[in-house]
């Protein structure tokens, strides 16, 4: 074949190939030992010397042409093969994932941590006292001598021993005493004490075991107004910025003056509903100025120091925050309940 014949046949041959194998066969047919282009190249020796250069150039042009087309075709075929392979590898992306199981934090832990974080940000130290306490710490040093009628409000579990002088704490207020006693310098104090407490009581709104948090601030000049400001901040942060706080005088043996603290009803926003008995307010905390007897019994000079204390049941906050109707659900540990607390909480 002459040069022009090779050139036109390679174009039509390359156009006809349908797969990579035919393409490679064609490469042998043209560039192999006995290939058509190889043969053209061999013809150079028969060409007169003055035409050799031009002949050689033309053969090279044909070879380059072949290679260019070949390369283009090869890439196209390989891409097609790869695409076919990928198509075969397609999976059902709707099948379930290989999940890492997500754990959950108990709602009471969540509430506790939220309370702790808020108070720690205000410079309070979290103090967790023991759950077994002496009658002295839980009552007597809180100005509740034996036989005090206010003890009735807290039906306490005493431990069985010779003296029946130890008990499961019925209030976290007992931690106040420990903090004051342990403060050997008898100087300023700023603590919150969250923890489990126990009372002989059980129904839809009472569990024999529940959680309280107690706050205690002692300094030379803290007042009822400081208490109110602190609780206003606390209630707004925990229950929402629209929450208002109301003080009502009340009685606790370890504070004087004492107040009950009401907040804007979280259900109706203060308009009045069955939850707040149409009053628009819900009672959530007890508080007051630390009774001078309590200060003195733990070694504080009540003429120099005064302080405020507050306490509340955290279960009620959890019940409100997550809309849990029955306290027994909180301690029921049904996995379908606790699993619900498995994500970041929208603030």
């Amino acid at each position: 074949m002459n040069m022009e014949e090779v050139k036109s046949s390679l174009i039509s041959d390359l156009e006809k190939v349908t797969d990579l194998k035919e393409l490679n066969d064609l490469k042998v047919e043209y560039l192999g030992k006995k290939g058509k282009i190889t043969e053209l190249n061999q013809m150079i020796k028969d060409v007169p010397n003055e035409e050799k250069k031009e002949f050689g150039q033309k053969v090279n042009e044909i070879r380059t042409m072949f290679n260019d087309i070949y390369e283009e075709k090869r890439q196209a075929f390989e891409a097609a093969i790869l695409n076919e392979k990928l198509a075969k590898e397609a999976i059902d992306i709707t099948l379930p994932s290989k999940k890492v199981k997500r754990g959950s934090k108990h709602p009471m832990t969540r509430i506790t941590e939220q309370f702790e974080d808020l108070f720690v940000s205000m410079g309070y130290t979290v103090y967790e006292g023991p759950e077994i306490e002496s009658d002295e710490n839980c009552f007597q040093k809180l100005n509740l001598p034996k036989g005090h009628p206010a003890r009735d409000a807290q039906d306490t579990f005493y431990l069985k021993d010779e003296y029946e002088n130890f008990l499961l704490r019925s209030q976290t207020s007992t931690a106040q005493v420990r903090v004051m006693e342990e403060n050997t310098e008898k100087g300023p104090i700023r603590v919150v004490c969250p923890g489990k407490v126990y009372r002989r009581d059980e129904d839809a709104t009472h569990s024999h075991q529940f959680m309280q948090i107690e706050g205690l601030v002692i300094d030379e000049n803290v007042s009822m107004a400081d208490l109110k400001g602190t609780l206003e901040l606390f209630c707004k942060k925990i229950l929402g910025e629209k929450t208002n706080v109301r003080f009502r005088p009340s009685f606790f043996p370890f504070t004087e003056p004492s107040v009950e603290v009401d907040v804007t009803c979280f259900k109706c926003g203060g308009k009045g509903c069955p939850l707040c008995k149409q009053t628009g307010w819900i009672e959530v905390l007890g508080a007051g100025m630390v009774h001078p007897n309590v200060l003195e019994m733990s070694g504080y000079d009540s003429t120099k120091y005064q302080g405020f204390a507050f306490g509340t049941g955290m279960d009620r906050f959890a019940m409100f925050k997550y809309g849990i109707p029955d306290i027994r659900t909180i301690y029921g540990n049904d996995i379908r309940f606790i699993e619900q607390f498995d994500k970041k909480d929208g603030e």
Partner: peptide, 29 residues
Amino acid sequence: LIEEVGRIYGMDNIKGKLPVLNVVTGSYD
């Protein structure tokens, strides 16, 4: 007596303010 004065005056008439205390760091376990 302070309580008597406070409760008839109205505990809720006390305006809340935030205590002025030394700066300390809080902590938890």
